[in-house]
């Protein structure tokens, strides 16, 4: 079973320590415990929602706000560029979800 590391008790996301397959169950370790079913496939290092996070609510990791939810994020969902936005950096929302590559400078590659 893959594991997801919860850093702080107040966190509503945990970091996958191995790649997780869609619908697989992962073990939560660190400051949390229990199991959670992944609603999406997600690579190691990425974040899974530990509980439902409402649109506009803060996403908490390290016990600290790392941005806000752009939409309702169900428990077990992949939390990344498509549903979590920085409170500071507007550009990150335009990056490619999988590779992180910029999409706003594509017109320069001619």
């Amino acid at each position: 079973m893959a594991t997801a590391f919860q850093i702080h008790a107040a966190d509503n996301v945990a970091t996958l320590l191995e790649d997780g397959a869609e619908s697989s169950v992962v073990q939560v370790v660190g400051a949390g415990s229990g199991e959670i079913r992944l609603s999406n496939a997600m690579p190691r290092g990425h974040k899974v929602a530990l509980r439902e996070i409402g649109a506009g609510e803060p996403v908490i990791k390290f016990g600290v706000r790392i941005g806000h939810a752009l939409e309702l994020i169900p428990r077990g969902a992949w939390v990344h560029l498509h549903n979590l936005a920085s409170d500071y950096d507007a550009r990150s929302g335009s990056l490619d979800l999988r590779s992180g590559a910029p999409t706003d400078t594509s017109s320069a590659y001619v």
Binding site: G45, H80, A85, D87, D89, R91, S92, S99
Partner: peptide, 26 residues
């Protein structure tokens, strides 16, 4: 960072699972 519109995160960071500059900062 605001004035140059560039925050200290790069494509590799996002691909590695980091989503926001705040998260990378921590």
């Amino acid at each position: 960072c605001k004035s140059v519109r560039q925050w200290s995160v790069s494509p590799g960071n996002f691909a590695g699972g980091l989503t926001t500059i705040e998260e990378k900062s921590l």
